[in-house]
């Protein structure tokens, strides 16, 4: 399609209209469109955002994690700003990224022994068995994942169920922030997901195709006219 096609009339980035709602984001009063998300409100604020912003609305990168207090409420909730609608009188604080004190280092290529997976899990994530069931992770998760149960499934060795439980995790690290035992539930869940795929996923159609390629039975021929529609390239000559 031609890049210069006239835009459809409704198109263009969502800009803040003259009349909107007012909320406070990181101490600054912002006026936003009535239906805007917190993130859209912040992005069209007084200065360009350089952190806590990524996918801008899809809810998959986990950057825009924030604490939210609605007008008239005492309770503070953790949310993804891109998935939460801005409301009048709302108070929002974005949560900085932090250098984690505890790292659970492993190389997935060295997780090769399925008989010993449970032992390896305990060796890499020794804190996981110490869950005190405070429920902080469950309250912190903006995706509604049953984090505490997921940790218990990992520790019990119920790996497939644990992997399914963390399927919708976007690695926002809010459960890790909330955990007083330094379990790092999201990293634990991802370890189990990675291990189950790497240890058990052996699709036979892929195996067969890889063998065909190795044996040279899958050559690609470039026809003489291939690429004839290409436009010339540009470079400057300064």
């Amino acid at each position: 399609m031609d890049a210069h096609t006239p835009p459809p009339p409704e198109a263009g980035p969502a800009a803040a209209p003259a009349a909107g709602i007012t909320l406070v984001i990181d101490g600054v009063e912002i006026t936003a469109a009535p239906e805007a998300s917190i993130l859209q409100a912040a992005a069209h604020g007084t200065a360009a955002l350089t952190a806590n912003i990524g996918c801008m609305g899809q809810g998959v990168c986990g950057s825009c994690r924030c604490m939210v207090r609605r007008q008239g409420e005492r309770q503070v909730e953790t949310r993804l700003a891109c998935e939460t609608r801005a409301e009048a009188g709302m108070e929002v604080s974005f949560i900085d990224y932090f250098i984690p004190e505890h790292r659970h280092v492993y190389d997935i290529a060295e997780v090769t022994e399925s008989w010993g997976l449970l032992d390896q899990l305990n060796a890499i994530f020794p804190e996981a068995a110490h869950c005190r069931h405070c429920g902080g992770c469950d309250r912190a998760c903006p995706k509604g994942i049953a984090v505490q149960q997921g940790v218990a499934l990992c520790v019990a060795g119920d790996f497939d169920a644990a992997a399914r439980g963390f399927d919708e995790c976007v690695m926002c690290n809010l459960c890790t922030l909330a955990c007083p035992e330094h379990i790092r539930p999201n990293n634990l869940g991802l370890f189990v997901r990675r291990a189950t795929a790497a240890l058990t996923l052996r699709p036979i159609d892929l195996v067969r195709r890889l063998r065909e390629i190795e044996q040279g039975a899958m050559a690609v021929e470039i026809p003489p006219e291939a690429g004839a529609g290409a436009a010339p390239a540009v470079e400057h000559d300064a």
């Binding site: 997935i108 290529a109 992997a163 991802l190 997901r193 990675r194 291990a195 189950t196 795929a197 790497a198 996923l201 699709p203 892929l206 195709r209 890889l210 390629i213 899958m218 690609v220 470039i222 006219e225 291939a226 690429g227 004839a228 529609g229 290409a230 436009a231």
Partner: peptide, 30 residues
């Protein structure tokens, strides 16, 4: 629209199955 570089396309498609295997090795589910 026959405007890609055919040598790059050949490389792309030839790598395909090995890319999937590599991703599975890193722990990606399909």
């Amino acid at each position: 629209h026959n405007s890609a570089d055919p040598h790059l396309v050949k490389q792309l498609v030839t790598d395909g199955p090995a890319v999937i295997r590599w991703l599975i090795g890193l722990g990606m589910h399909f």
